[in-house]
Design a protein around this nucleic acid. Sequence first.
DNA 1: CTGATCTGCCTGAGCCAAGA
DNA 2: TCTTGGCTCAGGCAGATCAG
Length: 393
Amino acid sequence: MSEIIENTIEELRLDKSKWKLTKFGDVAIQEKGKVDRDNTTLTRYIKGEHMGSEDLHIRKWGDLTDEYLGPAFIRKFEKGDILYGSRRTYLRKVAIADFDGITSNTTLVIKANEEKIDKRLLPFVMMSEGFTENSIKNSKGSVNPYINWKDIAKYEFLLPPKDQQVKLAELLWAMDDVIEGEKEVLNKIEHAYFTLVDNLFSKKKENWEYIRLDKIAKINARSLKSNTNPDYEFRYLDLAGIIEPKVIGELKKMKFSDAPSRAKRVVNDNSIILAMVRPYQQAFAYIDEGKDIIASTGTAVINVSDDINSKIIFHQFFSKKFTRYCEDRMTGTSYPAITPTDVEEFKVALPKNKDLISEEAEKLEELDDSTKIVKSKISSSKALQKSLINQLF
DNA sequence: CTGATCTGCCTGAGCCAAGA
DNA sequence: TCTTGGCTCAGGCAGATCAG
């Protein structure tokens, strides 16, 4: 696919001289239609939170009968309209409605002026860096920056001639199709993964044994002592370091003398790290190479004994059984957390047949790897689409 | 002294109200 | 009615404090 795009960009570059500097207000129309909520057949509404950043698709909505809805929700939108979140425009909330409904006064409802622009192309103009930059730069208000229509309408960009608009819109939507397809694949794989995890670990099974974790693993075995060399330099793994389940971000390098007091737990190779705070968020990660990583005391560092494939332990923490276990035990209202003791006492499931351990662990790893691959495909497809958008507008 | 828990600060985001 | 701006709530974090 990337080849097609390269070629298209090449082709367009030659022609860009024919593109016309155009004001956004000339190709887009702000819809201000209102809804009488007591007297309407419309049932769905869209709040800011229903729109995702950099996601053209509406995936969530509310139902009028659901719950109380603030009086600001009076704006009518129709299928095909573009919704634009006018508050905090750096969030890049641009979405296309695929049904008629109601939204609030702070969500702009926009229609394409189809005499000037192909309606399928307009949303991508709004996704561009230039458009977003304009919105951010012209936003008013300190607590809640927002953009006014007149400042959006002033925004100028290069508009291709109609025949090219059609081609570009087709290309961009084809890329969108690819991304949506990949997302669907991801959903399926993740579903398969969690189904397997729960089948293996959440149900009692014959020929499996249930063993306290501390019988087969060391938990928080090593801590940095206060007499540690102040110049000792390490990478610090705190809760912010686990950006999503199983994913470690860039870790800050620091010296012991500058480190926060909670930088204590020594991480080894093949360590399982569990964030004990808000365990339902599953900020759990597997560290292959743990040399010179120090974790915060908000985590449990688990090292499974060598004769057991530690991956089969790691994946159990993503089971419903473990989530429920945590929910039963965690304490604190604003800062719910489990303790190292809870981790020690958790009973892990292991097949009595040792061969089965590696076999199941491998299946889990395979699904996990596929997830990673599809995720990276999605992010590179998105990056490609984004870079095309920014080369165009 | 070490680890667990509390408290308060900061930020993000939605909602609402006053002013033009 | 539109524009502008602040209030409020919740999440997240980290230093302070507490308890064994």
